[in-house]
Design a protein around this nucleic acid. Structure first.
Lengths: 351, 351
DNA sequence: CTGAAAGCGCTTACAG
DNA sequence: CTGAAAGCGCTTACAG
């Protein structure tokens, strides 16, 4: 039934031209809807196209026009719902603008990132939007950017690259989270997950410290437990924090995945989150809302931010100027049910 | 600092040829590592490339060779972790084979699917792997397939298309789930989520009915509560089931997302899953393991299946034969903590 | 309104 | 071992 394997050569504009008894210039003209072509001729050409099952060869056109309608998207971890949402936001914007997204998932592998970047470069992409991997070197990106391909980085800043950046306000977001916890009465607040090799983590930790400082709470380095930015990392990190001599009564987490892992471990230890221990996440992935308990977290409108990064790149591709400063999306605290006053405090009030 | 906007034309093989004082044929030869070129000449050419920052124009080469190194990937819902994992599996296999994946997320929108399919076709993809949207018409796919582009469908079968298919064994998987629940002592078992417009759902419901029949349990249509295949759908569906005059004591769910939604709603109603009510999911997304309680579910090695679908397509692209029968991956029950004997039964035993 | 010609950056026989 | 020439499927001035 299928004719796979016997790949018949596709019809070209000269086939159409011949069948419609016109020149290929004329075919090309009707292809772009030029008004120069007489209606009757256009119809004849269109008919020939239908008859031959013509499909436009965008690659040939791109070659001739010395441009490209392909935009590279390199995503650091597609399996993390946060980045999946980001990817969807980017991808939609690219399609809407009439471009076509070439995707690569690097899975946090910096070598892989270099490879796909090179491949995209060969493919002649019009531009690239990338959420860089952890520990990624900027060399390849800089090189490609120098060759004239616009690049925008997103979500993870690559300071040394000087590349345009679109991200959320990690500092302010984490401040909001910690401020909320302090308002509830917490004093021993841990920071769980992430590594300080990630700019994102450093920015969030800085926000955490800033909120602490505002309330004259001394910063205790033992309270920041690094770990992978995923569920397993959350499990590990919360164990470390709990094992402290003076354990925390609450924690902010590097992201929601870490928070979910931490909550799982806490409940395994029969510590009820939202009563015995308070947790705030970051990202507001859709799982957060459906977690048990529903997770209080920080949102930054991921999908929109993705769309914004793409829009930004599209501007650059269109020849727009490189903006002087990065775009930093505002964050917002979403209160759900994973936090409460510290146990001790309630006890005292009741007494 | 950046030169974006002042896109300098990339160096071509003739620039290299000129600088290295050879013909462009020679440059092309060293490009493909031919042994015909004298070592000294090769070095000179390579040096010129470095000096000019040459980057290969794969598009031009593809045009000339009348082939393509781009493979289309159309995914029905990238935000669903199940499909995200699938996508990663496909994408890796494509990259490993030296191809480059062109991604589109259709978000379950059939019109969008047609659009991206057309776009990929224009782009001259070497082949396409697609997880079709719910209610997707096969026309465009058949048309493209007829034009000689190999296509493999995955996860959602499009019976009327006659296209090669790689998926998991929905029938057998659901049988395993229901069989397990029956073994635990359940008799009133609901099927939650999904619509019968989806082949996947129909196959799973058939497996559900088959297991029931094996144990001479009559099928009660009221027990299958359709709904969206996501968390919200799970919330809705379980409410419907619970409102029945003779409510179920357990449920199998269309997928893990539905299961997670259902569990959330159950716990909202103070019904403890894994004690008062039993739930089995389908897919084994990574969230399943970290859910509260950890979700008993059916796995089909998603990522591997994705890789298999891609490998399959790659064979077709290489000119391999269209296999006579679909590839159906085996499923396996993963027992975690979301199930128990029905309450009544335990009460009786204790009495 | 339509046609002939050149050229985008490659590869591939074909000579030498 | 290396070079000259043709051609992949388009677009774009330029004539007419």
């Amino acid at each position: 039934m299928l004719t796979t394997g016997t790949r018949k050569p596709r019809a070209t504009i000269v086939d159409i031209a011949r069948l419609a008894s016109v020149s290929k210039s004329t075919v090309s003209l009707v292809l772009k809807g030029s008004t120069l072509v007489k209606a009757e001729t256009r119809e004849r050409v269109l008919g020939a196209m239908r008859q031959l099952g013509y499909v436009y060869n965008r690659g040939a056109a791109n070659l001739r026009m010395a441009r490209s309608n392909i935009v590279g998207m390199v995503i650091s971890d597609l399996v993390n719902p946060f980045f999946a949402e980001l990817a969807v936001g980017i991808e939609e914007a690219i399609y809407t603008a009439g471009y076509v997204p070439l995707l690569a998932n690097t899975g946090e592998d910096a070598d892989r990132q270099d490879k796909v970047l090179r491949s995209m470069s060969e493919q002649g992409v019009a531009g690239i939007v990338i959420s860089p991997t952890d520990r990624s070197r900027a060399n390849t990106l800089i090189e490609i950017s120098r060759s004239g391909v616009p690049i925008v980085t997103t979500m993870r800043r690559l300071e040394e690259s000087g590349l345009p950046y679109v991200g959320q306000d990690n500092f302010e977001g984490e401040r909001q989270a910690v401020d909320y916890l302090i308002g509830l009465g917490h004093r021993r607040i841990a920071f769980l997950g992430g590594h300080d090799t990630m700019a994102t983590q450093r920015e969030r930790v800085a926000g955490y410290r800033s909120a602490l400082a505002d309330h004259a709470i001394p910063f205790d380095p033992a309270l920041v437990a690094e770990g992978y930015p995923n569920r397993a990392g959350g499990v590990e990190a919360v164990r470390v924090a709990l094992a402290l001599d003076d354990p925390p009564t609450a924690a902010v987490c590097f992201n929601d995945m870490v928070a979910v892992g931490a909550i799982r471990e806490l409940s395994r230890q029969a510590i009820k989150v939202g009563r015995d221990f308070s947790i705030v996440g970051f990202d507001d992935i859709s799982e957060a809302e459906h977690n048990a308990p529903p997770l209080t977290t920080i949102t930054a409108e991921t999908k929109q931010l993705g769309a914004q990064a793409a829009g930004f790149l599209l501007d650059l591709i269109a020849g727009g100027p490189v903006p002087a400063s990065p775009v930093i999306g505002a964050t917002r605290l979403i209160v759900r049910e994973s936090c409460s006053e510290p146990l001790g405090k309630r006890a005292r009030i009741r007494a």
